[in-house]
Nucleic acid binder design. Sequence first.
DNA 1: TAATTGTTTAACAAAATTGTTAAAAGTGTC
DNA 2: GACACTTTTAACAATTTTGTTAAACAATTA
Lengths: 206, 206
Amino acid sequence: MSKTDLRSSEELILNAAIKVFTRKGYAGARMEEIAKEAGINRALLHYYFRDKETMFNLIFETKFKEFFTGLFGAFQSDAPFFEKIKRIIDHEITVLSKHPDLARFVIMEIAQQPDRLIQFGQKLGLNPRMMLENFQKEIQQNVLEGKIRPIDGRQLLMNIISICIYPFVAKSIIKTMMQMDENTFLDLMGKRKKDAYEFIINAITP
Amino acid sequence: MSKTDLRSSEELILNAAIKVFTRKGYAGARMEEIAKEAGINRALLHYYFRDKETMFNLIFETKFKEFFTGLFGAFQSDAPFFEKIKRIIDHEITVLSKHPDLARFVIMEIAQQPDRLIQFGQKLGLNPRMMLENFQKEIQQNVLEGKIRPIDGRQLLMNIISICIYPFVAKSIIKTMMQMDENTFLDLMGKRKKDAYEFIINAITP
DNA sequence: TAATTGTTTAACAAAATTGTTAAAAGTGTC
DNA sequence: GACACTTTTAACAATTTTGTTAAACAATTA
């Protein structure tokens, strides 16, 4: 393959590895399948990347960042409270619609090895604790000012996140049960940006 | 080991297999680890159960049933609408609090092989489609009667399920970020039965 | 053209994992 | 004690998966 090809082999391999790892997880992924998906042979995988674990860590770091960074950004924006909620919802649903296996992959691999959350969080300079504390303070503030009903900040936080992320994690179940194809599902998720926002706002306005 | 022991080896193996499979998934589970967890040797695994796949299918069927049957029951109870929602929430949070890996396991394995949902659903005589259709009709009815705000039944359904299940799927992330130990988490889930109910009711009452 | 880099092939080595077998010993039952 | 069933041991076979190597070829660059 010449250098004038649209994508270098390295890139082809990386994209293939992303597909296979995010679909199957570390334990279920096969180097052979990655090579096949990339349209090259197994030897070349090891020419560009040391081994399976190295490859996985590279991809996990990318996906970890993709999953958390934007979300943290939305949480930390200085928009008014309701607007901030809107941004969180829009951002999550937009990102997860584009990356079908992202949420499931990250959640599963952290469940397999919880210390990855600390490890990669530090590596990327994310501070989940401070972020959550600030958001909870903001909730408390709004409760005190009577702008929203009294509610445990942790529960509201979990509700917002759950409503955004769960449908993508359980996508195959939802699609089967509701008899939707991929496009119908994505369409429903598009509408969900508005629906979820209204649902949450109705739930918390006094 | 004598027959007077509290648990038979078969039972020990099964419980060990449940632990390992639900924690690691099919691909990540190791027969060796199951034997170790059961306190017996690998040969005995094959004495009682043909092979890994047979074992897995047995356990998956059990867990599939555990995950869906009670939930379907709650959906199909003939309680009034709000009471039904309350039962669904209570049931889900109670079951998932007792079986920490249940939701993640079932969701992940169905994501790996979506036809399992149809296959095991039929085997257990569950009819997800009819159940969902009935619940959505009930939502429509309540909307028409003005008892709840206008809402897409599919979205409300997803909201209820998401709020109940997601915290258990992402448990390790939530625990780390909110700096909770296991007991604190379970305590929060206990309170969540009431909190989630109020949140949802507030969201839908006009 | 020579040198460098990228790529394929094919064979193979090494490791991990699963599954099998036979022999012996333990257990309870008749 | 004879019998059937359970369990352990230990070795090993089979398979799958991962990783390595050397040789040849292709493409690019100096």
